[in-house]
Design a protein around this nucleic acid. Structure first.
Lengths: 259, 259
DNA sequence: CATTATCTGTACGGTATCACACATTATCCA
DNA sequence: TGGATAATGTGTGATACCGTACAGATAATG
């Protein structure tokens, strides 16, 4: 197993900090079947891919790629969460997609672009399986199931991005906070997250104070409990009642395309 | 040649109105080579596709597909503009992508999803070539050039959507108006557009009054001239100086991926 | 235990956008 | 030509979010 190393200097201290908070990795190593895409492959193709898959530990704050940077692996998370962040010149940024065990990081490899215009950042520690580009492309070109599965997945990702664009325009910080919380706990085994309000603000592209206020309301309503970077979801139905439609639209589209 | 018919009732009167304004179609029929994707194909594959391509007239307000609706053609615009609109329940909407002769409508067909979650609407009249799904898939599966070209195009489209999400969060109506105007004239032969402020407001997902104000400033600055649905761009460099970076980022990504 | 760093709460004025209402002007068409 | 329709201009108050500043509170560290 490999631990991804990156010069951590370029990333905000936020994440360095956060990685100290939560590196409680599960003691048992996961199986590649825990990634839903890999799991959706027919046995024969899964078996053929398996020897090329390498288990890697994903730590909070790890950067899988930067804008314009070549990526050499496709990653299939089993229990970590990665977010695709799009940054602008003045320092602002927004998350355009959240990826967990339902998906893969590195679509640019099979889409043919070579690089992306955004950054992939590990939000929540865990494991992923990865495969080297040449090996992957070999398998990708050889059989249809992998190709068509990944293309459908990419379309689901497109739906997520489009919905994010609309959501950014039309919905309030409070609603988007709900959406973001649900997106995270959907991809985690427990109902506890480890992210500071400042980090959430970065994801949503809003002020930290805005998140404080919105989170305060959710806590007052008894939907969540948070304290210094630890958020516990107490009432999931309550969150779903407050979230904007965007959450369900995207979720339905993922289900439709991948099940 | 075929004229796309749709029950126009479902669409705002805006577009019905607009289609009256601008149906000044060019008198000479275009060539499929005017679509940049088709033009990028090697001759052999282009020739093989050609007999299946059917010229259709695209009128303002035509709807190519609605959310969840099956699409039976892939469209390759030569000189029309189509926008992908994402709507939400309360009636609000935002444009997530603009497609002209650099692209294609109907990626869902080769991505394998069958349907999209948004609507494709003709914004500016013109022509497109289209090909029926079974014929298209036949060609698509047969040779690599078409597949890889369309996948790279799809990645460019993804970049556009991601940037739209960020832009919606961080940039002002004025900047977004500039972006939208540039996107349009890039895809048209002249520097004149035919769209009312209300229609632009629909695209951007903002109020009509907001567009009036922003457009007023641009006119005062001598960058554009507009009058009742006709907009003439007088100073393109001026617009580029005001537009947010999003415009250039997306443009560069298209160039990188498709040239 | 004391210190420091980090996280969260709060408060203030400023600004962009909204929602609504209505006036004005240009174009269309009977 | 005149009335209807469509497009644009303007105004007013509300609201959500921003930028900034700073004050607790909690955890990490030596």
């Amino acid at each position: 197993m490999i631990n991804i190393q990156r010069p951590s200097a370029r990333q905000n201290q936020l994440l360095a900090r956060q990685s100290q908070l939560l590196n409680t990795l599960p003691s048992t190593e996961p199986s590649a079947r825990q990634n839903q895409l890999l799991n959706a492959l027919p046995s024969i193709e899964y078996e053929r891919l398996l020897p090329h898959l390498e288990l890697v530990q994903m730590n909070c704050g790890d950067i899988l790629y930067e804008p314009g940077e070549k990526l050499h692996f496709v990653y299939f998370p089993t229990d970590c969460i990665v977010s695709q962040l799009h940054a602008i010149k003045d320092g602002g940024s927004s998350e355009v997609a959240v990826i967990g065990n339902e998906g893969a990081i590195g679509i640019t490899l099979f889409m043919g672009g070579g690089t992306m215009t955004n950054r992939a950042l590990v939000q929540s520690a865990g494991y992923a399986y990865r495969i080297r580009q040449p090996l992957f492309m070999q398998e990708f070109d050889r059989h249809d199931a992998l190709l068509h599965l990944l293309l459908r997945y990419t379309q689901a990702l497109i739906a997520q991005m489009a919905q994010t664009a609309v959501c950014n325009r039309h919905h309030s910080v409070g609603q988007q906070l709900c959406r973001r919380l649900l997106l995270s706990i959907d991809r985690l085994p427990s109902n506890e997250l480890t992210m500071t309000q400042e980090l959430i603000a970065n994801m949503l592209g809003v002020r930290r104070e805005g998140v404080t206020e919105a989170a305060g309301k959710l806590q007052q309503a008894g939907l969540i409990h948070y304290s210094r970077g630890h958020i516990k979801v107490l009432d999931r139905p309550g969150l779903e009642a407050r979230v904007c439609e965007c959450y369900h639209v995207v979720k339905n589209e993922f289900d439709r395309l991948l099940h």
